[in-house]
Nucleic acid binder design. Structure first.
Length: 110
DNA sequence: ACTATGACCAGCG
DNA sequence: ACGCTGGCCATAG
């Protein structure tokens, strides 16, 4: 029925959330990687816009599996993200995620 | 319609 | 390792 549309999720937003939701446990993708995949579908987007979408709609998806390209965790949620990722078996290198081992692309084996 | 903002990224000093 | 710069483009006001 009439659903609230105070902030109607655009097609772009849906695609971003879809990609993030597909990341398997124990693996991660960077904002830039997500942006690239979404760009193949919608034809537009960038790492920065993905970050903007996550900030607004991230709560609906496993946001902790999206990290910065160098393995840093999202500002303000580092604690939470670290806990969840460790629980999934993601490797760490200091406070950062070990991207070389955890990085995942759609189509790759989980 | 326009401006400002930002959970980014790669390059450079 | 650290800070700064330019480019990126959807969202919000």
């Amino acid at each position: 029925m009439t659903r609230v549309t105070a902030a109607p999720p655009s097609e772009y937003v849906e695609q971003v959330l879809d990609v993030v939701d597909a990341i398997p446990p124990g693996r991660v993708m960077s904002y830039g990687m997500v942006a690239e995949v979404v760009r193949e579908r919608t034809g537009s987007g960038s790492a920065r816009t993905v970050g903007a979408v996550m900030a607004r709609y991230g709560s609906a998806v496993p946001w902790h599996r999206v990290v910065a390209s160098d393995g840093r965790l999202p500002p303000g949620h580092e604690d939470e993200a670290t806990r969840r990722l460790r629980a999934e078996g993601v490797g760490f290198r200091g406070v950062k995620v070990a991207m070389d081992a955890a990085r995942w692309w759609p189509g790759d084996p989980a």
